Simulated assay, not measured.
Amino acid sequence: MPEAENPGQTPSLARSWQIQRRVIFALLMREVITRYGRHNIGFLWLFVEPMIFTIGVTLLWSALRNLHGADLPIAAFALTGYSSVLVWRNMPNRLVGAIHPNLSLMYHRNVKVIDIFAARVLLECIGVGTSFFVLTLFFASIGWLNLPEDPAKVVIGWIMLAWFGISLAMFIGALSNRSELIDKFWHPITYLMFPLSGAGWLVDAAPATLRNFILYVPMVHGVEWVRDGFFGSHFEAHYDPAYLITWNVALMLFALIEIRYASRNLVPE
């Protein structure tokens, strides 16, 4: 029989981690049911949306291959580009304004702001990551692309890109609790960031003078990293792992500071 816990005693680190995992899992299941349980094809939209886009872009680029003369794997280019956009765009979108609708959950002493954020970004990571993996196998099976030249590099690049998306999402999500203007401005900003993210072009194709400025955008390094692992023999990749990791660490630090501020100034309803 397990030993009873003393209510006034601080739980051990292992016990705290066990409680944290159970809370996040419960919030994750709640999010799945709430978001996908009663809408059209539900969870499958995570796969259908990028598949429709990628197929459309692939057909268009293949039809124009003789005009642009590119020697790139078109399906792999579109897949890596759009999937990378989903990482840094969807995660913040899910966390902006996420605290207020979940204030009632804060009455549970084990539910914290960071738990709500973690459940939501974990769901996005699972969805986008699975979509990327399934579409890669599907397009490879029908001959639209070859499997990655360096799978390890693809996985590491994807993890770094996901880390960036998680850090950015948590920072923007916590910051949105300070002011509603964050919610108003964030969505237009994502549209402005899309052409700068490297999803629709290669850094190597940009003029040398412009390339130095482009490489200040952190997402570009993640996209180039993943593409280097996918079809690096077809182009010269330009990315700096240390630069992207520095961004990730800094964003995560600011995110944790903002989450702590939001938690301390929270008033449950």
Rank of each mutant, 00 (worst) to 15 (best):
W45I: 12
S16Y: 01
L86R: 07
E3P: 04
E49C: 02
F213T: 14
R227F: 10
A262V: 03
A205G: 05
A169G: 04
L137G: 15
F171I: 07
L147S: 08
G8M: 06
L67C: 00
F230R: 04
T190Q: 13
S104R: 10
L105H: 09
L147K: 04
L175V: 03
E149V: 10
P2K: 11
I52E: 02
L168I: 10
T80S: 15
V203R: 00
L79F: 04
V203F: 02
E124I: 05
P268R: 08
E180T: 00
L215I: 09
L44Q: 00
D150F: 08
F185L: 13
M193V: 15
W88K: 08
L196W: 02
W158Q: 09
G56L: 09
Y216P: 07
M160G: 12
I156Y: 04
T190W: 01
G127M: 07
F185W: 11
L122W: 00
K153N: 07
W61L: 15
H234P: 00
H108A: 14
L210H: 06
T10L: 07
H221Q: 10
D71A: 10
N66R: 09
Q9R: 14
Y243I: 13
V154T: 09
V223L: 09
H100V: 14
I159Q: 03
I114Y: 11
S263A: 06
R21A: 14
V220T: 14
M1S: 11
R260Y: 05
L28E: 01
A206T: 13
I142Q: 04
H187L: 13
N40T: 13
W247G: 08
L64R: 03
R211V: 14
M219L: 12
V267N: 11
N177M: 02
A70E: 11
N66V: 13
A140R: 03
V48Q: 03
L202P: 03
M160D: 09
L192R: 03
G97F: 06
L161Y: 01
I166F: 01
E224A: 14
A118H: 01
L175W: 08
I116A: 10
N212Y: 05
G97H: 05
W158I: 09
A162S: 11
V223M: 06
I74Q: 12
L175R: 05
H68V: 07
W247A: 11
S16T: 14
F213I: 15
T54C: 14
E149G: 07
A26G: 11
I257A: 10
F171A: 05
H68W: 14
W88D: 11
F133I: 15
